[in-house]
């Protein structure tokens, strides 16, 4: 009576997926060898954008929390790295988890009282947060942030005695981090936690009603996204060696929001969104003045034609072959 449905298609998908992944990795690894220094630098900044877009994707794409202040957490990570590195000479890569933790903690503190707000109300508060952070940085809080000029002389990162200095080295560092992030977040996505976030995005009343602690998981998503943004901030500080409040504006938050929305919520979507938002303007440099116009039109077109985004997450499939089937349904007649 019962059909065994959908157990084979999953494996077919995996069979296609693996060689595709290998090809993509080879392509990504070989790419900088063919690029001139300018384009390598562009790809490094797209990579940083992809990291940020992936981190916002946890909050906005997966849990459906409207956060338009993500640059604030990026800024906290970058500044924590810059301050600890320039004042205490702590190596930049050691500061990755520290920067992440600082951002995550900030996010939890500010999100705690506002997490129950819905949709656009929360969005307005997060816009406020990113402005407060930017203005605080300009005002040189505690004499630590260097005001409008920012902080100079951040050290380059060092791995196994190799000092990461050239763009091509940063390319591998940043895109390696992107690959690791995609791998970790994909696992998270298929777990109890990832499912809870999807449930919350879809209907938080139903999620609460079937036993999910909605407030806790929203905070968890916020904290995790901010942690990752903080680490991206640390990499950014190490890449630039100079940071200033101008790199962490409301506008940067809007671009990230657009990248995730265009992407549609999947990991690949978030990376694609980063390419579109941070990469395309470089290709169309000549039309730089019309950039925002094109952006606005593209977003409007998306909302009409494909409101779910370019690559919405696929239906999760589970291996059920180990379960022996055949129990009769309780409602079947005698």
């Amino acid at each position: 009576m019962l059909k065994r449905s959908g157990t084979t298609s999953g494996t077919i998908l995996q069979r296609v997926k693996f060689p595709a992944l290998v090809a993509l990795t080879a392509l990504a690894a070989g790419l900088p060898l063919t690029l001139n220094p300018y384009w390598t630098a562009v790809f490094v900044s797209i990579g940083l954008g992809a990291l940020l877009s992936l981190s916002l994707n946890v909050i906005l794409g997966r849990a459906g929390i409207f956060n338009m202040g993500h640059a604030a957490f990026y800024a906290v990570g970058a500044y924590v790295t810059a301050i600890l590195n320039t004042r205490f000479q702590v190596p930049v890569l050691w500061l990755l988890p520290v920067a992440g933790a600082a951002s995550g903690l900030c996010a939890l503190l500010v999100a705690r009282p506002i997490i129950h707000l819905r949709g656009d109300y929360l969005l307005i508060v997060t816009v406020g947060i990113v402005e407060i952070v930017r203005i605080a940085l300009i005002n040189d809080v505690g004499g630590l942030t260097g005001g409008a000029n920012g902080i100079f002389g951040i050290a380059r990162p060092e791995i196994f005695g190799i000092r990461i200095r050239r763009d091509i080295q940063f390319y591998y560092l940043v895109w390696g981090a992107v690959a690791l992030t995609v791998a970790l977040f994909s696992r998270l996505d298929r777990s109890r936690v990832g499912r809870a976030l999807s449930c919350i995005k879809e209907d938080d009343t139903a999620a609460e009603g079937c036993g999910i602690d909605v407030a806790r998981y929203k905070l968890l998503a916020f904290g995790l996204g901010a942690f990752w943004a903080g680490m991206a901030g640390a990499l950014f500080a190490a890449k630039m060696t100079i940071i200033s409040p101008g790199s962490f504006t409301f506008w940067d938050s809007v671009l990230l929001f657009a990248a995730v929305t265009l992407g549609g919520g999947s990991q690949t979507g978030a990376v694609l969104g980063a390419f579109l938002v941070f990469g395309l303007p470089e290709i169309f440099r000549d039309f730089a003045s019309a950039r925002m116009l094109v952006f606005g039109l593209a977003l409007m077109a998306m909302m009409v034609v494909r409101p779910q985004g370019l690559l919405p997450p696929a239906l999760r499939r589970y291996d059920t072959r180990f379960i022996t089937r055949g129990e009769r349904a309780a409602g079947d007649g005698e």
Partner: peptide, 11 residues
């Protein structure tokens, strides 16, 4: 899902 008679719709 088997108990409620929905096993054929799993995916």
């Amino acid at each position: 899902l088997e108990f409620t008679g929905l096993a054929e719709f799993l995916n």
